[in-house]
Amino acid sequence: MTDPAERRASEDLDARIAAAKARHAPQARQVAASALARGTRYAAEIAVATVVGFGLGWFLDRQLGTGPWLAILFLMLGVAAGFRNLLRAVEQETRAVEAEGRAELAAASGPERKAKGGPAGSPGAE
């Protein structure tokens, strides 16, 4: 049973292999399949957050006797919470795509820079 921390040493090689693989961009079908799998999760989270928000508001309404207003307010907040989760995931994904783009650029221009003796593999130096 290999310790994950011990495997870090070989990760440098793994990163280079990953960069080489990234040059062959993933197929459209793989992109669509991953969006389907992750998107379903976030869609379910939006629906559940809405229901939880409504339940919370309904419970508070019953305790405080404030008509349907808190239920409506918390329903909206629940929708907002679900969409916030989704937007956070989308932002994260955008950053990942940007990082991949930079890694690809660095991998493409890396060997020449090393030959010139410049700072090897510092992304965004140009």
Binding site: E45, A49, V52
Partner: peptide, 20 residues
Amino acid sequence: LIILIELISFLSRPVTLAVR
């Protein structure tokens, strides 16, 4: 507003986990 939203998001975690 944000605190309420985060609270709902936090409370909905076990529900999503169980329901999925």
